[in-house]
C-alpha cells in the first residue's frame, strides 16, 4: 500500500518537473515578444511623443503584462529616487534584480543592458536607432527561442513522466 503511494508520488513529481521545464521553453518566446512590444511602445513615446524618459517608462510599464512590467516600473522609480546613480546604473540594477522572475536568458539581458547605456542621452534619431537595433536583436533571440520551444517543449513533457516511470520500475 505504502509502495503504491510512493510510486504515485514519484510519478506525479516527475510529471510536474517535466511540465515546468516545458513551460519555461514555452514562456521565453512569449516574454520576448512582450518585451519587443514594450520597446516598440517606448520607441513611440520617445520618437513621436517626446515624453520624458521616466514618464515614458511608466507608460510602457502600464501597457506591459507582468513580470516585465515590474522591470520598467523599477527602472523609472529608480532614477527618481536616487541621487548618485546614472540612468545606466539604475536600469542595470532594475534588470538584474528582476531577471529571476522572467524566463529569459542572459543573451537578451545583455541586449537590454546595452540599450540602457544609451537611453536618454542622445537626440531622437539616435534613440530610435538604438531601440530598433535592440528590437532586431530580440527578434533573433525570439526566433531561436521558438525553435527551442518546438524542439524541447514536448520532449520535456514526456521526459519527466518517462523518467518517473523508470524510477518506479527500478524500485519495484
Amino acid at each position: 500500500m505504502i509502495k503504491l503511494l510512493g510510486a504515485v508520488l514519484i510519478l506525479f513529481a516527475g510529471t510536474m518537473i517535466g511540465f515546468q521545464q516545458a513551460a519555461k521553453f514555452a514562456e521565453r518566446p512569449r516574454q520576448l515578444r512582450q518585451l519587443a512590444h514594450a520597446l516598440q511602445r517606448l520607441e513611440t513615446e520617445i520618437g513621436y511623443g517626446h515624453t520624458p524618459l521616466p514618464e515614458a517608462l511608466e507608460r510602457t510599464a502600464a501597457a506591459t503584462p507582468e513580470p516585465l512590467s515590474a522591470l520598467f516600473r523599477k527602472a523609472a522609480s529608480g532614477i527618481l529616487e536616487t541621487e548618485s546613480m546614472t540612468f545606466r546604473d539604475s536600469w542595470e540594477q532594475a534588470i538584474k534584480s528582476h531577471w529571476g522572475t522572467t524566463s529569459m536568458r542572459s543573451n537578451e539581458q545583455s541586449v537590454l543592458i546595452r540599450l540602457g547605456s544609451t537611453l536618454g542621452i542622445s537626440d531622437k534619431e539616435d534613440q530610435m536607432k538604438h531601440i530598433r537595433l535592440a528590437l532586431l536583436q530580440l527578434k533573433a533571440e525570439e526566433d531561436a527561442a521558438r525553435d527551442d520551444q518546438g524542439r524541447y517543449e514536448k520532449m520535456w513533457k514526456s521526459l519527466g513522466i518517462l523518467i518517473a516511470v523508470l524510477i518506479v520500475i527500478l524500485m519495484v
Partner: peptide, 17 residues
Amino acid sequence: CRKLLERITNYSLYAME
C-alpha cells in the same frame, strides 16, 4: 557630467531639441 546632464534634462535629452 553625465549625471548632471541627465538630471537637468530629466533623463530625456531627446525631448530637448
